[in-house]
């Protein structure tokens, strides 16, 4: 039966050859030989609508309808995509990109501001530090100068007093030394007076002077 069908198919429609063979081959594998006949007839009926019994994708009678509906549905799809769907998605993506870029720029601006604030703070700090150092240095030198001046004054005072004292000592000393002659003369007069008798003061003095000169 299958063979007859193939022969018929070959006779009527060259294009049928390959698919029909496939069909038979498959049905043989399926193990049911009575199937092809009913099958093909059923298929023919199912195709209906004037479509011939060829391999469906090569059935030229269906082409106009398919092209017509492809054109309609694809044109509609293209219209909806290009006018509504894609601009909308593109807009969403653009808004998001702008937003992210804006946020990043804002963050960058704030970061720069922070950096600036930190830099000015550091500057103020180092400024204050150097100022403090300066003040401390100044104070220290002032105190030192003051101390030096006072010390110099005190020292000068002391040396003056010391030299005055030295002068007085020297004066006292010379004075004392001057008295020594008179005392020696008196002592000598007294001694001589006791031993020899009365001696004029002048002689005693001369004698002492004579001794001290030697």
């Amino acid at each position: 039966m299958a063979r007859i069908l193939i022969a018929q198919a070959d006779g009527s429609e060259a294009e049928l050859h390959v698919p029909a063979e496939d069909q038979i081959q498959f049905d043989e594998v399926g193990g049911d030989h009575s199937q092809p006949e009913g099958h093909v007839i059923e298929g023919t009926e199912a195709h209906g609508g004037g479509h011939t019994d060829v391999f469906p994708p090569f059935d030229a009678s269906t082409f106009p309808s398919q092209i017509l509906w492809l054109a309609i549905s694809f044109a509609a799809l293209y219209f909806i995509m290009s006018r509504i769907a894609l601009p909308r998605i593109g807009e969403i993506l653009e808004v998001r990109r702008d937003r992210i870029e804006g946020d990043l720029a804002e963050a960058d601006r704030l970061r720069q501001k922070t950096d600036q604030a930190i830099a000015s703070y550091e500057e103020a700090l180092s400024d204050a530090r150097s100022k403090a150092h300066e003040i401390a240095e100044k104070t220290r030198s002032e105190i030192k100068a003051d101390l030096d001046a006072k010390r110099a004054k005190v020292e000068a005072d002391l040396s003056k007093k010391m030299s005055a004292a030295e002068a007085r000592i020297a004066e006292t000393k010379t004075e004392a030394l001057g008295h020594v002659d008179a005392i020696a003369a008196e002592t000598a007069q007294a001694l001589v007076g006791q031993l020899v008798g009365k001696v004029p003061v002048k002689a005693a003095r001369d004698a002492v002077a004579k001794v001290t000169k030697e």
Partner: peptide, 9 residues
């Protein structure tokens, strides 16, 4: 039938 799925109805 593996071809039937391609039939245009």
């Amino acid at each position: 039938d593996p071809i039937h799925q391609f039939v245009i109805q």
